[in-house]
Amino acid sequence: MIDSLFDLVLCALIIFVAFAAVSGRDLFTAIVFFIVYGLMVAIAWLRLEAIDVALAEAAIGAGLTGVLLLGAYGRFKNIDAARMGSWVPLPVLIVIALAATGLSAAVGVVLIALDPNGLGLIPAVNANIAQSGVFNPVTAVLLNFRAYDTLLESIVLVVALVGVWTLADNSAWGQRVGKTQSVRANGVLQSFGRTLPPIGLMIGIYFVWAGSSQPGGAFQGGTILAAVGLLSAMAGLFPPPRVNDARLRLSVIAGPILFLAVAIAGTAWGGMFVLPADLAYGLILAIEIVLALSIAITLMLLVLGPPEMTETPQ
């Protein structure tokens, strides 16, 4: 009973914070509520015993998405208040509210109608995990049973980065990625930028290593490493790389290429992505390490955005 009371309170808070993020008075408030929302959803994932998802949600859903939105907010400062947008007209608003309520209710009805004792794919995963090469079932699904999804996902990251870079101004091409950061010497950002990266580096590498048997893996570890890189770059500790740096581009595609090579090599054992059980552990570990590096660099570049001309301080 106490357990389910906690769940009820947490869910009520999540809905309240989501409402504040969606309807908050100004943009900045909305973004801050969205970050809080992401952290609370991560707690919900812990309650559902999905620790890997909780890690990803906290690091990506709340962390990196929050940095992206706050970065964009900073660039909106020059826009006239009159051109910042507003609510749609009231009659339209009422129609939308009714439609949204209807959709939520429909999804709810479907959920209530589900078999409360459904097992999903748990028996199938348990029956095959011994051949997967790893002990963490989530890693087994990501890098073995449904490796296609993960390969395509790692390619989506590269394609998104190409899309972001195509938006660069012609005059900025060849510059360092992102906006020039101006940091107050020995301010909060710079102090954190010096203190946190060593800790983050250690945690990130641990997650990549631990992913084969415990919660963690290439994506969770890669995100933390991306955050370390972002923080160091934003604190001005090292200049962001240039877009046309060949080593940078190689590190972005190394993970997907190794993954694809292993997938194709699987045809020798009977088909795409067929990993022989005795080699699976080594192959998965190699993919995870290289993929984590590529993911970390690609995520960092996605959040930093296209190269921009150095702006003169106002």
Binding site: A50, E57, L64, T65, L121, I122, E153, L157, F219, I295
Partner: peptide
């Protein structure tokens, strides 16, 4: 928790971030 939805959701979270960044 079923591992298959978990893995697909992690994939989804990363794809959502890519789309958001773009």
């Amino acid at each position: 928790a079923d591992a298959v939805p978990q893995a697909l959701i992690i994939t989804g979270i990363v794809v959502a971030l890519s789309a958001t960044a773009l």
